[in-house]
Amino acid sequence: MGLTEAILLTIFTAATPLLIASLGELVSERSGVLNLGVEGMMIMGAISGFAFAQITGSPYLGAVSAILVGSLFSMLFAFLTITLVANQVATGLALTILGLGVSGLWGESYIGVAGIKMEPIVIPVLSQLPVVGKLLFSQDLIFYSSIALLVGVTWFLFRSRTGLVLRAVGDSHHSAHALGISVIKTRYLAVAFGGGCAGLAGAHLSLVYTPQWVENMSAGRGWIALALVVFASWRPLRILAGAYLFGAITIAQLHIQAIDLRDIEFLPSALFSLAELIKAMPSQALSALPYLATIIVLVIISGNRRLTLMNTPASLGKGFVPDR
């Protein structure tokens, strides 16, 4: 396996949790609920995935329990914001704070414990293809799920009747209610889906990306996932692009200092001096890259008013109390 291939592979690994968490949040936001607790649900998924994998010895049971725990945890948020119409921004923050606290408490005994890695599932024949064989067909189950989720969410939102109902709820909860759609039920389900996805994304961190438990190991990925939804202007395919872009940035900052630039086969000579310059920067500046990139991307996307206004769910972040 060449260096280029190895780097591409790590980019795929870094992008997968972002893709999964963003797709979940997308469905939630399309139903009109802004759940800022992604970071909290993700870290809960990471610790529960790790813990159940340790207990049962199976990373797959770990991942399943991460989905369940993420969903259950998101129900706290759902109860407050949907049933009690509490402020969604503040409640999302509360979910994140609580998640970081509970996971720290739960994970204390797992610090330094060797993790159980979810091994790749090699698909026969297809994995023999050059380059794509390694990248697409020799991956772990969570990666395959992320692609399935992408296809599933795209189909669900734009090709299915239930998806249409969900978008109607997000665009105008009063009209949807008047049509006899249960706004509250739809939103509960959407939030639960988002929670499950965030949980699975967390499990990817602690079972695939770095198979161990480290406190706060989500390190802001939940927030980046939130930004990706805005970046994608609420479209699943653009989330794919965004997640892989951010995966690339994350990996670039990790590798840039370690690699010898001459080893990279695809680097044009014009970029060489630029790369030299970046290499000379302090490591902290490189670590800041994903966060700075998030800000820059938000600025560029939000600057385009037409694009954002057209796609933002109109009821996003607004509480709904049915008039009976």
């Binding site: 802001g220 302090p282 902290q284 800041a288 600057g303 954002t308």
Partner: peptide
């Protein structure tokens, strides 16, 4: 100026500030 969501930008700047202090 750009309508960028202040929740996300202000939070991202926390990480940047932390790394700046570290450096």
């Amino acid at each position: 100026r750009f309508g960028a969501n202040e929740i996300l930008t202000s939070l991202m700047l926390v990480y940047v500030a932390g790394l700046f202090l570290d450096w």
